[in-house]
């Protein structure tokens, strides 16, 4: 198989294992491309991509934009802050207006879970989900798994622990789906208040003790405490203070050393140094945090390339 089974990348949930393998194989080649003296190939030169960001993003947007430009696509950017969304336009109208300007693909981030799925049913274009609320962030999960594969050789049978705010994290859900499809065992670790109820039904282990979790895992994917999301439910505090969170769930070099094993450290960024992870861990030899960023461009190039090949020529 050298074609994706889907027309859009809405979530890892909709992908087959073969799709993920194909994306990884293709990303491998793009990783070589972005390390050449001239980091550009002309594959998407007749494709126009719109990056629609209805929610703030720095690195995902930058990573997508670089991926698009290195494939020679034409890129237009849109952010909700400076648009007619503020004037009351609906999502479908906004997107259809942009598509009327002959755009072939849409990369979108939206605060509402399911927005890309909804849009894919109502507009005629190829959609890539760059994060929808607390639902999925498929390209992040793909680049995480790709980085793990690169470091470990094979993900099958690997033990991966996702630490932190699972409840508000789209990265966690996409990672769980992706890692399970690739045959890894997944554990989530965090305060009871930040772990969704019934998450065991996804087939993941749950721990509320970071030392126990580190003793079990080969890979620790540490998530950021999303302070901006803690305020969604105004009267609710999920943990008493950042200081207490750090005391209970922050990872430091001593804890890693005490396990007596090597644990691959990952973080989707941005890092709050000294909160969920200390600098000595984030900058250690076992940390692949910067590889994740590099692989992000290659994986996104692979996704864009494979999805663009399905766009008909008119």
């Amino acid at each position: 198989m050298s074609k994706l089974s889907v027309d859009h990348l809405l979530g890892i949930k909709y992908l087959l294992k073969e799709d993920i393998d194909l994306i990884f194989d293709t990303a491998q080649n793009f990783k070589e491309v972005i390390n050449r003296p001239i980091r550009k190939v002309p594959s998407l030169r007749d494709i126009t991509v719109a990056n629609l960001f209805f929610e703030n993003s720095t690195r995902t947007k930058l990573s997508f934009e670089l991926a698009e430009k290195r494939l020679s696509a034409d890129v237009v950017n849109f952010s909700a802050a400076s648009s007619s969304v503020k004037k009351g336009e609906t999502l479908i109208d906004t997107v259809n207006n942009i598509l009327s300007m002959k755009v072939d693909m849409v990369v979108m981030r939206h605060p509402n879970p399911g927005a890309p799925v909804f849009l894919s049913r109502h507009v005629n274009t190829t959609i890539i989900n760059a994060g929808d609320g607390t639902h999925e962030h498929p390209t992040q999960a793909l680049l995480d798994a790709y980085s793990m594969q690169e470091k470990l050789g094979d993900i099958k049978g690997a033990k991966v622990c996702i630490v932190g705010d699972i409840k508000h994290s789209r990265v966690a859900l996409s990672n769980i789906f992706c890692l399970q499809k690739l045959g890894a065992e997944v554990m989530v670790c965090g305060p009871t208040t930040l772990i969704p109820k019934h998450i065991e039904s996804l087939g993941v282990k749950v721990s509320h003790n970071i030392k126990e979790a580190l003793g079990w895992c080969d890979v620790a994917n540490v998530l950021r405490i999303q302070l901006e999301r803690q305020g969604d439910e105004k009267d609710v505090s999920f943990f008493p203070s950042l200081r207490e969170y750090t005391q209970q769930f922050g990872i430091n070099g001593e804890m890693i050393a005490n396990t007596g094993r090597k644990i691959v450290i990952m973080h989707p960024g941005p890092i709050n140094r000294g909160v969920e992870i200390t600098s000595d861990v984030a900058d250690s030899a076992e940390s692949v945090i910067l590889d994740q960023v590099e692989n992000g461009v290659a994986v996104r190039m692979a996704v864009l390339y494979l999805l663009a090949s399905g766009i008909g020529r008119n």
């Binding site: 050298s2 663009a308 090949s309």
Partner: peptide, 15 residues
């Protein structure tokens, strides 16, 4: 990635 028949084939060529 430099071919001129990208999107003119049903299945993209594997790199």
């Amino acid at each position: 990635f430099h071919r001129d028949d990208f999107r003119r084939r049903d299945i993209p060529l594997a790199p």
